[in-house]
Write a protein that binds this DNA or RNA. Structure first.
Length: 457
DNA sequence: TTAGGGTTAG
């Protein structure tokens, strides 16, 4: 730009001195064209990037088509990178393939940025073979290319390929370690995730990033490791992530709650400055209270959150209804449900219904629970909520409803033997041993074996 | 101005 500018000034000077010099005019024209194109391309690319990265990747494609119609317009590696990114964000494999061909034709088949963006795009679109092919054909790869391949395999649950990429890649960095570690936590292999974390930090001396911390949290709370919570807490404090990234703090408070330390969770919550608390922060603490049966605190937090101007979402409502359910605040739980539907126009999903039925069932308000179960739209209807109701019938010894609910469950799913056993237990509980036996025999005839208890809530 | 990493429902 500086050189072009200086050349132009010089030629303009010459032009003033020799107005009839045709060659000088041509040179200026040429330079201005070049300069204009470059400037224009930068502007186009900038807009393309904004579209590609934001919520309107389709706009990036329209813009590119518009550019294509301009005669003599050329594109650089930035243009193609952004466009490939847009295709990835749209998960449009066909579009990505077209851009791939165009970029190759334009001579970017050996450009590291463009080719890496292609690996990433194919991976995001689920075209693992195409991604691998682009990767294999690249003359030179860097750590970003390797990481794009590695994280792509993780995205599709192919831990074996990801591990193989990790083992082969030179210059593993924090993204590579975090990617693999995340893969292990996703596959519920928490001990291996922990061991990777330790190898990375202690033996390789690579400092975990905020993303590493976010990735290791599921391992922490699945293994109920409060000690590790404290370690991450201290590290987050020292590294500055606690102050800079509210997501880390949200995860930390959630992990403390899930590990059974609601006191520590509350301390983390209070450590977060009020202006930094977001909807997830509030939802996490409400959910924490729910886990510990602290319905009053959950309800109070909900109202406090509303007073800060934040709008609750379906997760917030589920958490507060769960809290009411576990803490026995039945009417308040019903009020929250009504508020969610009427004031916030949130359509309840099966988990909201399940929580509500569980809450009413625990309180022995079985008729209301049954009424709600019947109101669940067929398209989201789930046999699990009826089993929750059956469990409540069993607990409260309601034979009539127990029979009704069982036949409903039988209609929905005939193979589950556990329901026969529950009904049989209901009969036995009120002394109707003949009926109890009859149900057991029916179960045997249908050869439906009882499976281990499983909850979806 | 370009490439890589999952905060809340237990």
């Amino acid at each position: 730009m500086g050189v072009v500018g200086r050349n132009c000034s010089y030629i303009l000077f010459m032009l003033h001195q020799h107005p009839s010099n045709r060659r000088a005019i041509q040179q200026v024209h040429c330079q201005l064209l070049v300069r204009n194109d470059l400037r224009l391309l930068r502007v186009w690319n900038f807009i393309l990037r904004q579209y590609a990265l934001c919520v309107f990747p389709q706009e990036a494609v329209s813009l590119f088509k518009q550019q294509c119609s301009q005669v003599g317009f050329f594109f650089d590696s930035f243009t193609y990178s952004f466009l490939i990114k847009a295709s990835a964000n749209l998960t449009q494999f066909g579009l990505g393939k077209q851009v791939h061909c165009l970029s190759n034709k334009a001579g970017f088949h050996d450009n590291g940025y463009v080719q890496t963006a292609l690996v990433d795009m194919y991976m995001k679109c689920g075209c693992l073979v195409d991604a691998q092919k682009v990767f294999d054909e690249m003359p030179k790869r860097n750590s970003v290319t390797w990481n794009a391949l590695l994280t792509g395999f993780i995205r599709w649950g192919d831990l074996v390929s990801a591990q193989s990429v990790f083992d082969r890649m030179p210059g593993k960095n924090v993204v590579s370690w975090t990617g693999l570690l995340d893969g292990y936590t996703r596959m519920n292999r928490f001990h291996e995730a922990f061991s990777l974390f330790q190898r990375m930090f202690l033996f390789q001396g690579i400092r975990p990033s905020e993303v590493t911390l976010l990735a290791i949290f599921p391992a922490i709370w699945n293994l109920r490791d409060v000690g590790f919570c404290q370690l991450v807490h201290a590290y987050g404090e020292k590294s500055g992530y606690n102050a800079s990234d509210v997501r880390v703090m949200n995860c930390l408070l959630d992990a403390y709650a899930k590990c059974g330390s609601i006191g520590c969770a509350l301390r983390v919550f209070e450590e977060i400055l009020d202006e930094r608390k977001n909807l997830v922060t509030w939802t996490s603490i409400i959910s924490g209270f729910a886990m510990h049966g602290m319905a009053e605190e959950a309800s109070k937090s909900f109202r406090k959150m509303q007073s800060t101007g934040l709008t609750p979402n379906r997760v917030t409502f589920l958490s507060v209804i769960n809290a009411c359910s576990h803490g026995g605040l039945v009417d308040e739980g019903l009020e929250f449900f009504k508020k969610m539907v009427n004031e916030y126009a949130i359509i309840p999903d099966i988990k909201h219904y399940g929580s509500l039925i569980d809450m009413l069932g625990r309180a022995g308000r079985l008729e209301e629970a049954e009424k709600i179960a019947k109101e669940i739209p067929d398209d989201i209807g789930n046999v699990v909520v009826w089993r929750v109701l059956l469990g409540a019938c069993s607990f409260h010894g309601n034979v009539e409803m127990g029979e009704r609910v069982t036949s409903k469950i039988m209609k929905m799913e005939k193979e589950y033997g556990g329901d026969y056993i529950l009904l049989s237990n209901i009969f036995a509980g009120v002394g109707r041993y003949a009926d109890s036996e009859r149900v057991r025999r029916r179960m045997d005839r249908k050869n439906a074996a009882k499976v281990t208890g499983l909850s979806f809530f």
